[in-house]
Design a protein around this nucleic acid. Structure first.
Length: 463
RNA sequence: GCUCCGAUAGUGUAGUCCGGCCAAUCAUAUUGCCCUCUCGAGGCAAUGACCGGGGUUCGAAUCCCCGUCGGAGCACCA
């Protein structure tokens, strides 16, 4: 099987579907898969030189290593050879019709005057195309299919055209005669030995077009499945490489790994495991109708993977300060993980005041249980330690909330898909290593990204 | 206009090829309860679907026809 991306940028979440499915099938059925960069349009779908490696990185993140990597722009000579063979078989002709004129003829099922050229002429004109003797738009090579085919999309389609713009890859920059996807991909699939193809419904007619070439060469066409488009809920940003690139350009997004970007690099930075994405994608199946992937499915998969190994911490967003009274303990020692007491406890100095999230502030006179510390009663904007037993919580009389010491807590910027949130975390968070995952209790999971001079930066994973 | 394709709960999916085992599976979601010093995890329960209409048949999610809705192609893009 093959994954044939157009290298025009890092992958968005939807791109994960192809490697997820074919990679999983390979592992399950002892198969084989390659990545083939179909970069045969130096102009309208101009490749981005950084994208080749970026895509391979994304693939690695998802947990797959391709069995081989090909680049179409390295293989022009191969396509030329097959085109020449096709010409000798009478299966292709050079055509200088302007696009719109040919389109009119085609739509009425009429052949253009070039269709009956003799092989000798076609051979010479195609050689001239390869030599770059024509400019863009002057000459194409068409595959001779069936000009009266009931589906107009299949009639004598273009196999090669002239492109004036040099290819960005230096190795391919001298070529001017470029194959179209249907020709290039059709030839490669056979030569590489692809037995099963999965592709989008937008390429529904590709197989039908390519079969004409396969018939000329007497090749057997691979099994092919077409699937619909994937939409991901939870993102405002349109999931298109070019749109994301524009937003980055305009400064709306910080980069491909901005937590608001619907990209794999973004999910990676948020601490989501590739496996969680792969499983969700495989779960979508290969239906031809369009599907919506709920990010909650990815989150549920990821939570399953990381919950057990992730230690707990406190983070208070938009904290309100409350002085403490009544001689509470000087230190709180909540466990690192409630299901793993053997991992030990955090030692949080309490100080003389704490921060609470605004929604957790008890009404005057009401009690609240500061998790890992004890019970307090709010009066006159202060919290007085009551010394109540945990039994009051079990009875349901008192809510349990998280908190941080007002002075010894550390500032944290939590970057979320909905924007950045400022907060303060318990002191130990300042010592965590970059890349470590934490669960901010009652807030959600997060990945520690780095410690700046002024603050610790964490990326929000999911609830 | 011509040509393809599809339609099962909020979302995804199984079942459709070879009609009965489907008063329709599983996951996610939502809600409630239990447990818990998290709104996490775990346990239990509830909610919720075969696009519509005909036909074939003893019997239709499954086969046929019509309709509706949705998607795709008809590029010198991939």
């Amino acid at each position: 099987m093959r994954c044939a991306p157009n290298p025009n940028g890092p992958w968005h979440v939807g791109h994960a579907r192809m490697p997820a499915v074919i990679g999983t099938y390979r592992d399950r059925y002892d198969g084989w898969f390659c990545v083939r960069f179909d970069d045969t349009d130096p102009e309208t779908k101009r490749p981005d030189l950084d994208a080749y490696d970026a895509i391979l990185e994304d693939l690695e993140y998802l947990g797959f290593e391709p069995d081989a990597v090909y680049t179409a722009s390295d293989r022009l000579e191969t396509y030329y050879e097959h085109a020449r063979d096709l010409i000798e078989l009478g299966g292709a002709y050079t055509c200088s019709c302007p696009g719109d004129e040919f389109s009119d003829l085609k739509n009425s099922g009429e052949a253009c005057p070039h269709r009956d050229k003799d092989v000798e002429t076609v051979r010479e004109e195609f050689a001239a195309m390869i030599d770059g003797e024509y400019d863009s738009g002057e000459m194409v090579l068409r595959v001779k299919t069936d000009i009266e085919h009931k589906n107009p999309a299949l009639r004598d389609w273009v196999a090669f055209r002239m492109v004036d713009t040099p290819h960005p890859r230096e190795e391919a920059s001298e070529y001017r005669c470029w194959p179209m996807l249907d020709f290039q991909s059709g030839i490669d699939d056979h030569l590489i030995g692809i037995t099963h193809i999965i592709r989008g419904i937008d390429l529904q007619d590709s197989a039908k077009r390519q079969r004409f070439v396969y018939d000329y060469f007497d090749w057997e066409y691979p099994e092919v499945v077409h699937w619909g488009h994937v939409q991901i809920d939870a993102y405002d940003v349109k999931m298109s490489t070019s749109t994301i690139a524009e937003l980055i350009e305009e400064g709306e997004l910080d980069g491909w790994d901005d937590p608001r970007a619907p990209t794999l690099k973004s999910l990676r930075r948020r601490g989501i495991r590739g496996e969680a994405i792969v499983d969700a994608m495989v779960g979508l199946g290969t239906s031809t109708s369009d599907v919506d992937l709920a990010m909650s499915t990815v989150y549920a998969n990821n939570r399953e993977l990381i919950d057990d190994g992730t230690d707990r911490r406190f983070l208070v967003r938009d904290g309100e300060r409350f002085p403490l009274e009544g001689s509470p303990p000087a230190e709180a020692t909540p466990p690192l993980h409630p299901d793993h007491e053997e991992r030990g406890v955090r030692e949080i100095p309490v100080g003389d005041a704490v921060l609470l999230e605004p929604t957790d502030v008890p009404n005057s006179g009401d009690r609240v249980w500061l998790k890992g510390l004890g019970c307090f009663q709010q009066t006159d904007e202060t919290l007085r330690y009551t010394g109540d037993d945990i039994e009051v919580v079990r009875e349901g009389a008192v809510d349990v909330v998280h908190w941080v010491p007002a002075s010894e807590s550390v500032p944290v910027r939590l970057r979320t898909p909905d924007g950045d949130v400022a907060g303060r975390a318990e002191p130990g968070v300042g010592d965590l290593e970059a890349d470590e995952l934490v669960q901010f209790e009652r807030v959600g999971f997060a990945r520690i990204d780095r410690h700046d001079d002024e603050e610790t930066v964490a990326y929000y994973t999911h609830p």
